[in-house]
Amino acid sequence: MFDINGGELIIIVVLAVLLIGPERLPGYAAQLASLVKRGKRLLQDTKARVDTELGPEFKDVDWSKLDPRQYDPRRIVREALMDDDEPAPAGPTAAAAGSAAGGATAAASTRTSDAPRAAVPAPFDDEAT
């Protein structure tokens, strides 16, 4: 948490002994210990109160999913665009799905490059507007 190694801790203890003095150091250590104990007790009480007020339905919530560090916009878009009911078509099934979906798209994909483009009308959905 504080990223203090052994050498740094020894320097801090030596400085504390020199600055505070050996006669007052046990009193300050006791105050620090009681402060840490009160902080730990406060944290435990707060967790218990939050659990009590939220109720049992929030006990099995995975809070790590709400961590902003887990945010990946590509994954979110991919999951939003994928249908849960039918898997994404791949390989030869994609052509079959395209021909089953609409004749205009199948005709457009099988059309040669020298054919006039005006022969196939543009797709239009009158219910979309």
Rank of each mutant, 00 (worst) to 15 (best):
Val17Tyr: 04
Phe2Thr: 10
Asp62Asn: 15
Leu9Val: 07
Arg38Asp: 15
Val50Cys: 06
Thr93Glu: 14
Ala94Asn: 03
Thr112Glu: 07
Arg117Thr: 14
Ala106Ser: 15
Thr93Arg: 08
Asp3Pro: 07
Asp72Met: 05
Leu43Gln: 15
Ala118Asn: 12
Ile20Phe: 03
Met1Tyr: 02
Asp114Glu: 11
Ala101Arg: 11
Leu25Lys: 01
Ala100Arg: 14
Leu9Pro: 05
Arg41Thr: 14
Gly39Pro: 08
Gln70Trp: 02
Ser34Ala: 15
Gln31Trp: 01
Glu86Trp: 06
Ser34Gly: 08
Ser64Asp: 14
Leu66Asn: 00
Leu19Pro: 02
Ala106Lys: 07
Trp63Thr: 05
Lys59Trp: 05
Asp3Glu: 12
Ala95Tyr: 10
Lys47Thr: 14
Phe124Gly: 11
Ala90Arg: 08
Leu43His: 09
Asp67Thr: 00
Lys59Pro: 06
Asp72Pro: 03
Ala48His: 03
Ala128His: 01
Ala30Thr: 11
Met1Thr: 03
Pro89Asn: 02
Thr105Asn: 08
Gln44Tyr: 00
Asp126Phe: 12
Ala104Leu: 12
Arg74Gly: 11
Thr112Met: 05
Ala88Leu: 09
Val14Glu: 13
Ser109Asp: 13
Leu42Trp: 08
Leu18His: 00
Ala107Asp: 13
Ala16Asp: 08
Thr129Tyr: 08
Ala16Gln: 05
Asp67Glu: 01
Leu54Pro: 03
Arg41Asn: 13
Glu8Ser: 03
Gly27Gln: 11
Asn5Trp: 04
Gly55Leu: 03
Glu127Val: 04
Thr110Ser: 14
Ala97Glu: 15
Arg111Glu: 08
Glu57Gly: 06
Ala108Val: 11
Gly91Gln: 07
Leu32Pro: 04
Gly91Tyr: 04
Ser109Tyr: 11
Lys47Ala: 14
Ala48Glu: 13
Thr129Val: 12
Trp63Cys: 00
Phe2Gly: 06
Ala118His: 11
Ser99Tyr: 06
Phe124Lys: 13
Leu9Ala: 15
Tyr28Phe: 11
Asp72Ser: 10
Asn5Gly: 15
Val36Tyr: 10
Gly55Arg: 05
Ala104Pro: 02
Pro89Gly: 06
Thr105Ile: 14
Gly103Gln: 12
Ile10Thr: 14
Ala100Gly: 15
Arg38His: 11
Ile76His: 10
Lys40His: 10
Ala100Cys: 07
Ala106Trp: 10
Val36Gly: 04
Pro73Glu: 04
Ala94Cys: 03
Arg75Phe: 04
Ala33Tyr: 07
Leu15Trp: 00
Phe124Ser: 14
Thr52Glu: 15
Thr52Asn: 09
Met82Cys: 11
Glu127Cys: 00
Thr52Met: 09
Leu18Cys: 10
Leu15Gln: 14
Gly6Ser: 14
